[in-house]
Amino acid sequence: MRPVVKASLHYLALAIVSILWLIPVYAMIVNGFKSNLEVLSSPVLSPPTSLSLTAYITVFNALAKPLVNSLIVVIPTSFISAFLGAMGAYFFYTLSYSFSKLSSVISDVLFSLIALATFIPYQATLIPLTRLIVSMGILDTYIGIIFAMLIFYIPTGALLMSMFVSVIPRSLIEAAKVDGTGDLKIFMKIVFPLSMPGFISTLIFIIIQSWNNFFIPLILVTTPNMRLVSVAVQSYTGGYGTLYNDTFAAAMLASVIPLAIFIFLGRYFIRGLIALGGGGKGV
């Protein structure tokens, strides 16, 4: 087969896959600009005949508070998780060159726990989690949602940062030890600055995950005022009688921030994904 034909087939295949994959986001963008009548009557996949901003205007008013709520929850959660998780990751690193049997047992147990926290279907902890949050009196509060998220995202941060911290040359840590430095200072002055790219990857990863988290805000918020945007969007589901073009505008508004982060800082997100699979090297 001639190279030109091969190359064209190659790009054709990629184009087909891309189009298929982009259909949903295309639908999301396009239908938000249709009038309600048009959304109901015209195909989802066809572009609007005239641009209408009514959907966005209505939805923005309704989603303004949830958007703010999400920001208030996601920003502290992600920064705290990434930073405290990084500290935990360095702790694992120190354990890895300690000499006692006890420390390898501790690191196995703790590491399994943080892996469990990262990958477990967190819906399975629904009942004890709600009970805990209620008994702590923080249901329907920012603190409550943040606390619940931290249970899963601090370990996630620790898992991801473990990958990034493990590539720091051991001799730097040893030199610092010989220089009489305590581990906390080694973390603050050497390990954390040197793992900054990994920290940013972890941060981006957790921001996107926590922003899109649907279940935890679903169960821990009962007052409409405190709803996060990932749940508020759900009120625009189909079901006869509800507004439809609003659905797409709502979906778009809820996704703008994570999508924007993905477009501009996507490589950090991808590095975070790769670290999740256990391979922080050479990315």
């Binding site: 040359p169 001799s171 030199a175 610092a176 030890k177 010989v178």
Partner: peptide, 18 residues
């Protein structure tokens, strides 16, 4: 090591890059 009052020059020097 931090309590042994030693100075060490590593083969790769191990200078703190930051």
């Amino acid at each position: 090591p931090e309590d042994r009052r030693i100075g060490m020059v590593f083969q790769t020097w191990a200078l703190y890059p930051n």
